[in-house]
Design a protein around this nucleic acid. Structure first.
Lengths: 343, 343
DNA sequence: GTGAAAGCGCTAACAG
DNA sequence: CTGTTAGCGCTTTCAC
């Protein structure tokens, strides 16, 4: 092995041929030995494995994929608004990424992460069409129902985390958004809240459904819903903070907030605190997602659980079903209200 | 195009040959046209591009990589303690992932994410040795200095986010940890704190360096450091919460805390709050990292900035330098204390 | 300016 | 049980 002066090895990567030569067998035998083919002598296999190990030899996955016409990688797409050039920051989103990564690892898949501009959602297809991935997981539907349908019809295996809509050609995994919104609002109303604001972007299917639940809770309680209490707040942290600060600075009359995400709830609580309003005494706040960190917030967040750990498992198994040629069911994860101290 | 009853296309993916046939040229010409080779008629190129677009044809990246012997993907490794089977949850960690993803996207690279068991760090090499990635970015050194050196010497292009140690064969990017610890501790001492606890796992190089800074600040102020105030707290959320709760439940005598991460600071603040201790009035807390969310915490976190957005850019450019055959410098990002309200 | 042909590193018939 | 051979989809000399 040739070494540079700095001790770094610059030898070309070993390949199957090298292992074969050292073992005195053919490439085919090495291939079989390494992949656990049954028709190989156990002794031979051991010997070959050992040689491969000594050489730090690993099968070239690209060549293997090419030959087999398959691959074991899944694309995970991060939406991204080019207009604001924002970094990923919502803890829910990142937790989902972690959850999916775990689930994929368990099933022997790798994860290829890419950011795509929300307005060029067609790019999602490229990971699959260029053969880099067998399918794609998308977290967040944005406003792109039609394009997603188009992608799915084009034959791109696709699973989306989000709200379930009519006439979907793609599979979704999501939680019971309407119920979640309902539980949150009902809890607040039961606690005696009279003016419950709703923070979130209604154009997003998931948020829209949660708002429906919020309306239902009000109807059931025989309470009127005030238009002025529905505030359009984007999910992105910086934008959200601006929107919330500016809204709250008008000192609106409210005693409770339903937020469409824990991040929004936390921002709201902090913003309220800055102006001397106490949570939950003066204003009660319910979040959404139950991010790992919600329990450690100050005050600990009352929130609607999204079962993030389970979400990854379900997204992955739905996708693998589709890839396997099946027709994946939409899956809905159970939702519940986690009562802590913010409401 | 053959369509199933559900309207999903089941046609085999088009390949270069198909485009060539439709354009009445050879594969070679299509390849050149698509890759922008100059020796192709502009008309021909347009025509070919158009056909490719119509067919949703995209070059098969695996085949291309195999032929060219290169690839445009980088591995991002998530450390993972199999003993606790923990999901990724530290917001700092996830923010770094986002930051690296952004930087890679900008430079035309893709990111392959994999989790590897902290005790089998050798696996980090496999992404490179199997040809899936050209190099690897690792966030967090864990306790594995020797193995990392070994990997680098084996020829795996490797950049690590973390503290810089003596005799490193691998490149690091990190912030001025000693200075960060110093600034945090000095700030607390200047505010009149007399018993400053330090929360963090000293076995991690970065944390060790921060502790050095903490010691220096005490020395400068002529203050003794109490052994009982140095608490080993792991970074993982659940474990950390347990450790912190159990420590604080002993009602130790302290009036300030230097935490090794924002997550730890937040957990500490929440834990203190639960027992009626106010922050910063009774106990002042300084975090570390300045995660996007620190400003929105309640109270807004005083913390040491790690310049996460810049970190991704630097990690990526260091790695690409190494891959390009260069010998990357270690890079240190400037550190500063961000004073908000928790201290 | 374009085509023919070789080959990247591997696996899987098919033979023996 | 093991070897021979063809070829996965692409790029790139080398000719013309």
């Amino acid at each position: 092995m040739s070494l540079d002066t700095d001790g770094t090895s610059r030898t070309r990567r070993p390949q199957m041929e090298d292992v074969a030569r050292m073992a005195g067998v053919s490439r085919a035998t090495v291939s079989r030995a390494l992949s656990g083919h049954p028709a190989i002598n156990e002794d031979t296999r051991q010997r070959i494995r050992e040689i491969a190990r000594r050489l730090n030899y690993t099968v070239n996955v690209g060549a293997k994929n090419l030959r087999q016409g398959t691959n074991q990688t899944i694309g995970f797409v991060i939406p991204y608004e080019s207009t604001v050039r924002q970094a990923v920051s919502d803890p829910f989103f990142l937790s989902m990424l972690g959850s999916v990564a775990d689930a994929l690892t368990d099933r022997g898949f790798e994860m290829l992460v890419s950011r795509v501009d929300a307005s060029e959602i067609d790019q999602v297809a490229s990971a699959v069409e260029s053969g880099r991935a067998s399918g794609v997981i998308l977290v967040g539907q944005w406003h792109q129902h039609a394009q997603l349908n188009h992608l799915a019809k084009r034959g791109v295996p696709l699973v989306v985390w989000g709200g379930q809509l009519r006439k979907q050609a793609y599979a979704t995994v999501g939680s019971e958004n309407e119920l979640g919104g309902y539980l949150a609002a009902r809890h607040l109303l039961e606690r005696g809240a009279r003016h419950v604001a709703f923070f979130g972007d209604l154009r997003l299917p998931e948020v829209g459904l949660r708002y429906q639940g919020y309306l239902r809770a009000h109807a059931e309680a025989g309470r009127k819903v005030l238009k002025r209490l529905q505030i359009n707040v984007p999910f992105a942290a910086e934008l959200a903070k601006t929107a919330i600060d500016s809204y709250l600075s008008t000192r609106p009359r409210l005693d409770a907030i339903c937020a469409a995400s824990d991040l929004l709830a936390m921002i709201a609580i902090q913003s309220l605190g800055a102006t001397g309003v106490r949570v939950p005494e003066d204003v009660a706040v319910v979040g959404y997602d139950d991010v790992p960190f919600a329990a450690s917030f100050n005050p600990p967040l009352t929130t609607v659980s999204q079962q993030i750990a389970l979400a990854g498992v379900e997204l992955v198994s739905a996708l693998l079903e589709i890839i396997g040629g099946g027709r994946a069911q939409n899956r809905t994860l159970p939702t519940s209200l986690i009562i802590r101290q913010s409401a």
